[in-house]
Nucleic acid binder design. Sequence first.
DNA 1: CTGAAAGCGCTAACAG
DNA 2: CTGTTAGCGCTTTCAG
Lengths: 336, 336
Amino acid sequence: MVTIKDVARIAGVSTATVSRVIHDGAQVGPVCRARVKKVIAELGYRPNSNAQALVGKTSRTIGVVTPKLSMSFFGTLACGVEKSARENNYKLLMANSLYETKSELDALNSLREHNCHSIILHSDYSDHKTLTKLANDIPGLVLINRYIPKIANRCVWLDNVQGAEQAAQYLLDKGHRKFAVVTSIYRNGDPELRVQGTRQALERAGIDLPNTAIEESTANIEGGEQAVNALLAKGCKFTAILAYNDLMAIGAIHALFAAGLRVPQDVSVIGFDDLPLARACRPRLTTMHYPVEEMANYASNLAIELNEPNKKIGSRTHLFLAELVERDSVAPPPEG
Amino acid sequence: MVTIKDVARIAGVSTATVSRVIHDGAQVGPVCRARVKKVIAELGYRPNSNAQALVGKTSRTIGVVTPKLSMSFFGTLACGVEKSARENNYKLLMANSLYETKSELDALNSLREHNCHSIILHSDYSDHKTLTKLANDIPGLVLINRYIPKIANRCVWLDNVQGAEQAAQYLLDKGHRKFAVVTSIYRNGDPELRVQGTRQALERAGIDLPNTAIEESTANIEGGEQAVNALLAKGCKFTAILAYNDLMAIGAIHALFAAGLRVPQDVSVIGFDDLPLARACRPRLTTMHYPVEEMANYASNLAIELNEPNKKIGSRTHLFLAELVERDSVAPPPEG
DNA sequence: CTGAAAGCGCTAACAG
DNA sequence: CTGTTAGCGCTTTCAG
């Protein structure tokens, strides 16, 4: 490994000078600078970022904690952060939280050991109190997909209620009057919020959503299938299904087809998230676009800013809105 | 930040002792150890891994370089590495290479600055020579999805030829005789290999694959659609399509349906990779399972082993095989 | 404009 | 079994 000392020795200068050259400090003469740069290039020297982090009290590293990187949503989230990291010359440290409170915290701590002060956390199971405390301990912590009023300026979130409302309103506008809702059993907040949004839109239109028209299951394809099968089994009548997310929506479509119902001719289905999947299935899924990548990018920039000592972050809020993407899984209800 | 010194002072011992306790060195008395542990817990002390890396000459960090984390395939790859990292108490550093030679190398270098000696690289565009040189420079570098004979013991790869052969043979066994191939324009090796495997299986069955039955396009859904439309436009006759990957297969199915052809009744389609998508589309896609997660996990363990000074890695080879997953997109050819 | 020197937090001999 | 000491590679005053 070639160190700053090697460069200094060969260039015939002190390590301090080399350091200055590296950091483009103006405090060094042009000839000297040129010589040092030459030696750096020749030796292929690159500064050891561990040493830099050690002395600098902070590493140019941004950490990301999400449940599971192999899920499309989180991979996209990571990508958004990566872009910001790359542009700001930060490195990206990742850890899966695996949907467990304990490993969520473990993951976070492992990042802190690295002096990683900019952290994007997608927390599913830690409570507000824990997170608020964490945010106070870690100046560069930003929560994504979560809203906690006390630390609002550290939360980058999406208005789930508004998104679900919009989805329901769209279905209403298409003429639907009989709805079913397929939601998630997970109690991390989002499902309730989306159901609430749906309810609000329907109530405004004078339509009641009976509890029998709501079916809960796991938030994946199988869950969507199960939920729709349960709905069908109990004779629930509907011309449109609002699914918690795209995965459940796709499962719903599968179950519908298996039962001889066509989408969207007999039943319309709307999803949420706009995963890559939504463009791949048939019919292509009409859904609410969740701008994760954009949000993650924003969150990352925010986390980095938060660590810049001079910048003062006010109590601004970071709210994003879901956007309707019309594709092929929604049509007006069948006649009669 | 609480340091080892704080712990030492409060526990009334030297930093060396604290260090020993941290590393479970047996060289410390039980009472003393207990006291130190207590103080560590009380203070919430966690060692600074930058300092550890600095003195230890190597950081417990494993790096991953892939084109784009938001792609399902690479997210899954990262997950495989993450699991191994977590189990071995390593941290995960990620960098996107964005499908460019230069950023591939940039990404790699940024990892090296971190003293990150265990690296998993998914290289698409660097040539054998560059990679061989890199492998010599970085003892813990492991290539995934690439085979270079000279550094075979550092390559974790999949036999694409065999996989494609198997897919073609499966179609042959179902009774198909008229094939079309939808492949990728990217020249990173895989497409050629898969076409070659297909050719081999067909030739063995005495079937010729005319160049007109092969259509190239981008390796995504749109590419699959385009390719099939081109095939259809030039009046190519086939009862089965072998797609370069699942994305192109799904695109192919879309184009087929748009043209009034049913899958699998009129035309069978087989994919490659077995992305989550393959289970979500309709008909569910029959495809060759690419065990990326398993391979990545293996590669990560290998990379970590490579950095353990005493272990001698022989010239073993690390070849994985694709496996057929039968779902619903393949059926016997229509009568006549 | 440049160098000397101190020290970031930690580990690893070497003593005792 | 435990403490002392000397750095790891780098940045940053403080002098010059």
